[in-house]
């Protein structure tokens, strides 16, 4: 464990807590994409298949349970909670996220480190996570007013993977033959997808204005 990875995990934890807090306290999911939340639930389900069979550490298991629990409960809130679901903007959240799942699955079947069920599912979760934010970014472009919590959620979600990239650089230089191209490339693509959001987020922060993305 290095500082970059710990910072990345904490940033990721904060992003899901910010979102859960928003939905649970103000009972609203305005501006939040259900599609992205469903993709993330799928990412964690595919990645943490061995949560009970491959014990690594208490920290690792607890964090996996938190990520699984939070992502599925956010999906539950947005789909079934009678108050929260009313604030879900399904007419705007129209990204066909099923078109993301299949290509990622096919790619995982073609490009992976080992052709086993667990490894292919793990690789699938990497590719899917890289594109899971797209429905949310599209929704932000459409809904003019981006409330602070949603903006912070997306920012933290992007920052966590950027910190993971620093973690991979650190591990590359400190651990012998630590080479994982698949993870590095998908992590880089994921972070680059946030590039323009980061730019506008920083601009709004610098000029102390409300965050708005150009149409």
């Amino acid at each position: 464990m290095n500082i970059f990875r710990l910072a990345g995990d904490m940033t990721h934890l904060f992003s899901v807590l910010v979102l859960l807090l928003k939905i649970h306290t103000i009972k609203s999911c305005a501006g939040v994409s259900l599609k992205t939340q469903e993709l993330y639930a799928l990412v964690f389900a595919a990645r943490y298949l061995d949560i009970f069979t491959n014990y690594i550490s208490l920290y690792n298991t607890v964090m996996k349970l938190i990520f699984l629990g939070s992502s599925f409960s956010i999906v539950w809130y947005m789909r079934y909670h009678k108050i929260v679901r009313r604030s879900y903007d399904k007419d705007q959240d129209t990204f066909r996220h099923y078109f993301l799942i299949l290509p990622c699955l096919l790619l995982a079947l073609l490009i992976n480190e080992k052709f086993t069920f667990k490894e292919v599912m793990w690789t699938f979760s990497l590719y899917l996570e890289a594109v899971a934010i797209l429905p949310q970014l599209v929704l932000l472009q459409r809904t003019r007013n981006i409330d602070n919590l949603t903006g912070q959620y997306v920012f933290l979600l992007g920052a966590y993977r950027a910190l993971y990239i620093l973690n991979w650089v650190y591990r590359y230089f400190t651990e012998p033959h630590f080479v994982h191209w698949i993870t590095w490339v998908s992590g880089l693509v994921q972070t680059l997808l946030y590039a323009d959001f980061f730019y506008y987020y920083f601009q709004s922060w610098k000029n102390n204005q409300k965050l708005h993305l150009p149409a």
């Binding site: 990721h12 491959n54 690594i56 550490s57 973690n167 033959h177």
Partner: peptide
């Protein structure tokens, strides 16, 4: 085992 090295990440 290199494979497990990466799997300790979240």
């Amino acid at each position: 085992k290199e494979e497990s090295v990466l799997k300790d990440e979240l």
